[in-house]
């Protein structure tokens, strides 16, 4: 079972590397969108610093969402997804592999870029480690929940917009706990409960999201 997981992970990672402009575009979106906020709310360092964790998290959500079509869309169009479903290995494990590859191709670069956004938006120094740790714990859930949305919209009209409508409300808990963790750290409170909730969401989506996404994929390739 881990063999299948690793095979699909390796395949998707290889595809991600071959099409690395996709990753670069998402990262560019992340940075460019963050650069809009000083124009929107004014360059005052205090205002920016106060809303910086929220901006980074919201943009991370949007960046993950924009890259979700990479998960299944291409494989579905060229028929590879149908072949994948024909393998005897359990489909949820394969979905897990694809979601893991998606996280490595999107979540990790976002985490790496988050400090840059922190500097741009004058984030308080004490907040950096918590923001990074929160993103590390939260973005895998985003990829997993996003996999469900991406699988549900396979073959739909205006799949990208539809995916936003389906997935963003489901992302709200991750956003809330990610941001409140940073706020708590800045205010000098314990971040433990926030991280525990983020971890619980991750465990639940690890267990449930692959099942739901697999069911949706089965329906799409029928």
């Amino acid at each position: 079972m881990t063999g299948v997981f690793l095979t699909i992970l390796k395949r998707d990672l290889l595809l991600t590397i071959r099409q690395s402009t996709d990753v670069a575009l998402v990262m560019a979106f992340f940075v460019v969108a963050a650069a809009l906020f000083p124009f929107g709310v004014g360059p005052g360092p205090e205002t920016l610093g106060r809303i910086a964790p929220g901006i980074v998290w919201v943009l991370a959500l949007l960046a993950v969402m924009l890259s979700l079509d990479r998960l299944f869309q291409q494989d579905w169009e060229d028929g590879a997804l149908e072949l994948i479903t024909l393998t005897p290995a359990p489909l949820p494990i394969l979905v897990l592999g694809k979601a893991a590859a998606h996280w490595i191709g999107t979540g990790l670069p976002l985490i790496a870029l988050a400090p840059l956004l922190g500097i741009m938006l004058n984030l308080t120094e004490t907040a950096y480690p918590i923001l990074i740790a929160g993103l590390a714990l939260g973005t895998p859930s985003l990829s997993l929940i996003g996999a469900v949305g991406a699988a549900l919209t396979l073959g739909a009209r205006r799949a990208g917009l539809l995916m936003a409508l389906l997935v963003l409300p489901l992302y709200i808990p991750v956003l809330i706990f990610g941001v409140t963790a940073v706020d708590a750290a800045v205010a000098g409170f314990s971040v433990r409960p926030h991280f525990l909730y983020l971890g619980a969401i991750l465990l639940a989506s690890l267990a449930l999201a692959p099942l739901a996404a697999a069911a949706a994929i089965r329906n799409a390739v029928e």
């Binding site: 469900v148 549900l152 919209t153 073959g155 739909a156 009209r157 205006r158 799949a159 539809l162 409508l165 389906l166 409300p169 489901l170 709200i172 808990p173 969401i201 639940a204 449930l208 739901a212 069911a215 949706a216 329906n219 799409a220």
Partner: peptide, 30 residues
């Protein structure tokens, strides 16, 4: 939106049903 998003309307039944179930699991968390 999902229930009516497919050119072949019969294709929309299962995704919409799955979404309703996913949503109800998420409501307590949200």
């Amino acid at each position: 939106a999902l229930a009516n998003a497919f050119d072949d309307p019969s294709r929309g039944h299962k995704p919409a049903a799955l979404l309703a179930v996913v949503g109800v699991v998420n409501i307590p968390v949200i």
